[in-house]
Design a protein around this nucleic acid. Sequence first.
RNA 1: GGCGACGUGGCCAAGUGGUAAGGCGGGGGUCUGCAAAACCCCUAUGCAGCGGUUCGAAUCCGCUCGUCGCCUCCA
Length: 489
Amino acid sequence: MPVELFNTLTGRKEVFRPAGDVVSMYVCGLTPKNHPHIGHAWLFVSVDVMRRYLEFSGYQVKHVQNFTDVDDKIIEAGHRDGIPPEEAAARYIESYWKGMDALNVLRPTVTPYATRFIPQIVRMIGELIAQGYAYQADGDVYYRVTRFPEYGKLSGNTLERLAAGARVEVGEHKENPNDFALWKAAKPGEPSWESPWSAGRPGWHIECSTMIREVLGDTIDVHWGGRDLIFPHHENEIAQSEAATGKKPFVRLWMHVGLMQTGSEKMAHSLGNFVTIHDMIGEFGADVLRMYLVSEHYRTPVTFSIEYIGRAKERLKRLQAAVRNLAFLNEQAAARPSPGETFATGKLADALRDQADSSLAAFREAMDDDLTTPRAIAAVEALAKQINTTNDEVAHDPSLATEELLPGLHYAGDVFGQLCRVLGLDLSLEKAGAETSGLTDDVIQDKVNERNAARQRKDFASADRIRSELAEAGVTIEDRPQGTIWYRA
RNA sequence: GGCGACGUGGCCAAGUGGUAAGGCGGGGGUCUGCAAAACCCCUAUGCAGCGGUUCGAAUCCGCUCGUCGCCUCCA
C-alpha cells in the first residue's frame, strides 16, 4: 500500500512519490519572537510524525527547518525584553529547542538561519531584478507579481480576485498592491546588511526561497507549514523560486496543518490568547501533551482545551499499563520453564501475535491514508488492551506465565514499541522513573515490604497509611497475586 | 466582497456508495482486606436542515442555516 498525502496545491490526496532516494522536506520554522505556543507544537509534532512514519516505511528524509531570525517582530521583542534583537532571537530559539526535545520531536537534519544566508539572499534578489521579476524603489526592492502569471495558484486566487478584496494597501513605492518586499531599507538603529540597493534586511518571504535552494535544491519533495502561511507566504515563495530558478514545480507536495483554536479563534502571539508549550509540559508532562496532539488529525483545526489534555492523560494510562505489564509478564514467564506445550498458554501467545499483526496492519492503513493518527492510535490501543488482557489472565492463573508465552510477548512488545515510536510516544519505564521525586528505589521497596507485612497481620490502617504516603510522593502501588509492584507516575 | 475548510452520540473523534471504529465521561460487573490499575458488558434506527441521484448515502449533487481560517504580522 502506498502512502497517500493531501496536497494543498491540488486539493486532493496523492500517492507519495519522492523524486529521489532521499526525501527532501522543508518546514517553515519559527520566527523566534516569543516562547513557542501549543499551535507551534501542533505543527512540529505533525511534521515529526510524518517523518517518523516515512522512516518507518523505509524512506530516508532530509529534513530542513529554518529560523527566520531577523524580522520586525524580533526587533519589537528586543525592545519589549530590553535586549538586542539577536539576543531575543537566541533566547526564543533556546526555548524552542527545549520544548521540542521534551516533546520527543526529532531534530531537523539541517537548521539554516536567515541571517547566515544574507549574501545568497542578496544574490537571488539580484537575479530576480535582472530577469524583470523585481524592481527597486528608494532602497527597497519589490517583487512584481504581474510578471508571474501563475501567482495565486496555491491559494486558489488570481490577481483579479485579490484585487477585488482590496484590503491590501498600496505602498508608496509599489506598482501593484500585491507586490511584496524582497529587501527593506533599514531605519536608524535597526539591524542591517549591505546590499546594492541599501543597507537593510530581507523581506519576510525571500529567506525561505533562498535557503531551500541553497540547502535542498531547486525542486523539493515536501514543504510544510501552518495553514495561515498559504497566503501570502507560500504563494510568494513559489513566485520567487520558480521565477529565479526557472524550474517547476518548486515544491511537489505542499502540506499544511490546521490551526490551533482558542475558544473560537486562532491561537496566536499577536492575539494574546496563546498557551505556551512550556506551561503545558509543566502541568501535564510532555508525553500527555504529545498524546493530545497526535490524537487529532493534522489537517483539522483543533480547539485547545485543558479538558481535552486531561482526556489524553487518561488515554495514555492504558498504554503505560501495557509497558509495565509487558515487563512484568516477561519476568514471570522467563522464570518458569514450560512444562511442555499447554493449550491455554499457547492460546494466550497466539492471541498476542494475532493482535500485533492486525494492529500493525490497521496502523499502516491509517497512516498511509494521509497520516490519520486518530485511527492509528486506536490500533495501538487495541494492542495495549490485548497485552493488558494477557496480564489479567495471568493474574487469575499465574501458572499460565511460562517460557512458552515468551515468543508471543516479545513479538507483541516489539510491534507495540515500534508503533509507539512512530507516534513519538516515549513510554519507557526508565524515563518514568527519572522524572519523579525524592525517594530512592530502596526506600520505596522498604516501605512496600513494610506495608505488605502490615497487610499480613491484617493491620490495614498502617498498610493504607503507607500506601497514601507513597501516593503523595508520586509512587503508585499495584497488588498482584504474584506480589506487589510499584511505579512512579 | 473573493478564496478555502468544516458541521457525526453528553464531549473528543474515525468513517468518500452497502447499512455508524476508537477514546473520554456515565452505568453495571470481575479482581482486591479496601482501593488503585487493568479487564469484561451496556451507553447514536442515526450522521446541521430540506430536496435530489441511486436498489441502497453520513458518504454524490443542489439549496438553506451555522462555525472557523486566509485575503494584514502569524505555525
